[in-house]
Design a protein around this nucleic acid. Sequence first.
DNA 1: GTCTATAGTGCGATAGAC
DNA 2: GTCTATCGCACTATAGAC
Lengths: 246, 246
Amino acid sequence: MMEATRSTAKTIDFDSFRQMALLSMEDICVEIFHENQQSIKIKKETVAVRNLVNIFYTTLRLSNEKGFQTMSLRDLSGASGLSMGALYSCFSSKDELLEMIQKQGRRITRKVLFDHLDQKDPPRKKMRTLIRVHLYLTEVMQPWFYFAYMETKNLDKAQRKRSVESELFTEQVFNGIQQEGQNAGVYRPIDSVLTSGAVNALLQDWYVKRWKYSRRKVSVEDYARFVISFVESAILSEAAPGDTEK
Amino acid sequence: MMEATRSTAKTIDFDSFRQMALLSMEDICVEIFHENQQSIKIKKETVAVRNLVNIFYTTLRLSNEKGFQTMSLRDLSGASGLSMGALYSCFSSKDELLEMIQKQGRRITRKVLFDHLDQKDPPRKKMRTLIRVHLYLTEVMQPWFYFAYMETKNLDKAQRKRSVESELFTEQVFNGIQQEGQNAGVYRPIDSVLTSGAVNALLQDWYVKRWKYSRRKVSVEDYARFVISFVESAILSEAAPGDTEK
DNA sequence: GTCTATAGTGCGATAGAC
DNA sequence: GTCTATCGCACTATAGAC
């Protein structure tokens, strides 16, 4: 039997991430149902979740095509097959529907990133893991992340602030790892704030410009390898050893 | 008197770019007036341009706050001080207003990038110039580019296609330079399509996340230097000489 | 729980006075 | 050229039948 403790464990790949994360639309909707039971008039979980799955799936599809504001609830009703009445028994206003989706996206991001980050790992491995996990997560939940990215404007002031905080938090994590690496001499002493922003921009490109990568037949594994090597060429100190992984 | 021909000329900086480009709101509106005279009922140039400046300025401000679809023409009327009638004497529908802004943005981008790109320059200098000019341009016209980026969804199918083509064109230019550099042995033989996409993502971050860089007091010159060194560390071949410029 | 019908609001767009 | 007044329509949200 092997000791499953240390950082020498094999790098996570996309398929095992997908199985581990259990991020199906249904799992997410069960959570949303329990969190918003005061706004949801339906009391039976099976019925509520069935409708929520339908509503979120359809909302993401229509909104990501033509924008949340442009999508009328009549559009949503028609495309989902639910009547206006059925829709309003799952949320109390169109704005609340928007908030539900945004809020859930943020919660999952935070949870998944934390779950996969092992503080005992050395900085270079942490950085690689974080890049991989972020890409895998946004690959599995692409419509969610695209929606969150594009529809921030439609949130009220308070929700908007949470959205900004969420973005800065992710960069903060990258920044921390990079400073740790600089102190250990693995990374070159270059501006870690700008670099973290750059890494973030490269990660966001994966789900914001998904059409481009699909068209070019670039897989998420391809892109993960590319980002890691692109970023490492820029930040690794000259003395650092070559690629040791994979 | 000096010969102003060759590529040894000093690298362009932001202030001289700004003076050279003549991209004031008014200059742009004069062009728009002449291009859309069939849709614009006002015949006197001075009056039409005065109103167009007001309308575009206000539209960009309101839309970039809460989205073009969410901004009603009554909002626009109130914020600009023009009546509904005055608005409709400058465009024939809300959608046309959207198209005017998008179209003009694309035209200026193409023109400015071409004007500043000297085909006789060596690839490394071309790449640096292109990064700088792109950043300077999007700095001067930030609201325009942010608007174009966020409101693509609201365009009709034909206009949307032009928008996608415009994005791919910019990447194509970077891709061409990179291949030229690889053939010359200046750049390493890494995937030039992925790399061009990465450069594009870093350039877009400058105007899409403008709030972040403002808050951190990063100037456009700071960011240009950072992007150039970040990208060059990743793509320069090991044999290439160090920084020779500035 | 889910439907249809409808109330009430605010939109884009236009006509006609000035 | 610019204004105000107004048309017709589509929207969000709700009420009441089943």
